[in-house]
Design a protein around this nucleic acid. Structure first.
Lengths: 211, 211
DNA sequence: GAGAAAAAGTTGCATTTGCAACGGAAATTG
DNA sequence: CAATTTCCGTTGCAAATGCAACTTTTTCTC
């Protein structure tokens, strides 16, 4: 399943017509600010035009978990409307971001103006959502590892595949990695040290070499 | 996001034409047999016509993890083609199953026969995939809990919501639940006992009452 | 209904993990 | 460049967890 974006196979001219049809709202957000909270905004999807953001939730006792990292052209909001109340899903800007919002209803309902491009848009969204589901499944695969050591190694192996190299630098900070792995940061640091000592790994800070 | 199926908003007559266009293969599987392994079959999606199946993987040391439970009208295969090799994704029949397979390529590519129903099919698949992504996100939410106790309680709370009652019977066996929670079964049993002792829960076997 | 297989339930023990609480390094900001 | 914040790295300790090994109960199958 190749990488696709919301813009795939849509010509600029066609995109112009889509914009006219959807009347999207484009908005800028400063680093650190909240772009979306899922307790409210369930009626629209967001498209990252620029910047970097995290889809996270915070549970009752204040623990962060990073569900997704969002970059340019990524889409959010199409998937999350989980029923449980205690939790707070949010999309938070990491860097300054520019976001375009589309009405969800407008998107999935047959267009009164007979826009042929709707179907291509849905097609793209399907691909992207399937892709996203893969990311989630990968995350589950990592979290399913019984021990922290295995979680780390599984994560590092995935990263090595993505980077096409056994040596690379993590895109996440180590603190963020601990959140992603849903574990205690200090315990993770300790385990990384052990992995180094046991010769599975050679790492310094965020630069990783799998041995 | 309401429950939708691959058949939503497609009339029987239209479905007939789709069948003619796709020439799907329908196949029966006995309980316990393997319906699909993702090392091979990445070119088609499956639709559960009847029965119950599990999408699982088994890692190098033989640990099961249940990624999804599949029931009638559920779709599988549209999402999973994870790059890591060591693992073995499979869809395994729990009860006797009847499955319809559709070609993935045929589905996503514009149809030479100009089948209008393609777009509705993709629309439905988009909904279902978004739904599936929600399930995966829920799973992550559960696995993200730092302690087994919190994992159990989060799972039980979700189940209570689905059942619209604080008293219900688990659809998973306790062994399967341990797999779903990616934990040791005996440790889970112990923690369930503790939850009972602490008055958070009243359970006997698979019947649960949240207090 | 007998036998086999799967599921449920238990326990002891070594190991892993989470948590709290540090201090220093690095990056960001005014 | 000084100040502040974030990130990195460490340690001690109590608690949680995984694992192995077992018995009992339930379910399935012939």
């Amino acid at each position: 399943m190749q990488k696709s974006s919301i813009f795939s196979d849509i010509s600029p001219a066609e995109w112009e017509r889509i914009l006219h049809c959807f009347q999207p709202i484009t908005q800028k957000f400063e680093a650190g600010s909240y772009i979306m909270t899922f307790s409210e905004d369930l009626d629209r999807i967001g498209i990252m035009l620029s910047g970097k953001a995290h889809l996270t939730y915070i549970d009752a006792d204040g623990k962060y978990t990073i569900l997704e990292q969002l970059y340019t052209n990524d889409v959010f909001g199409e998937v999350f409307s989980l029923p449980l109340e205690e939790q707070e899903f949010t999309v938070q800007a990491i860097t300054d971001c520019e976001i375009m919002f589309l009405s969800y209803d407008h998107l999935v309902k047959p267009c009164s103006k007979a826009c042929a491009h709707h179907s291509q848009l849905i097609n793209n969204l399907f691909h992207m959502t399937a892709c996203k589901a893969q990311m989630l499944a990968m995350h589950i695969h990592i979290l399913s590892q019984r021990t922290l050591r295995h979680k780390l190694m599984t994560y590092f192996e995935y990263e090595a595949l993505q980077n096409r190299s056994r040596s690379y630098t993590l895109s996440l900070t180590l603190s963020a990695l601990a959140d992603y792995l849903c574990t205690d940061r200090s315990a993770m640091m300790r385990e990384i040290r052990h992995l180094n000592e046991d010769g599975k790994l050679s790492s310094k800070g965020r630069s990783i070499t799998l041995l």
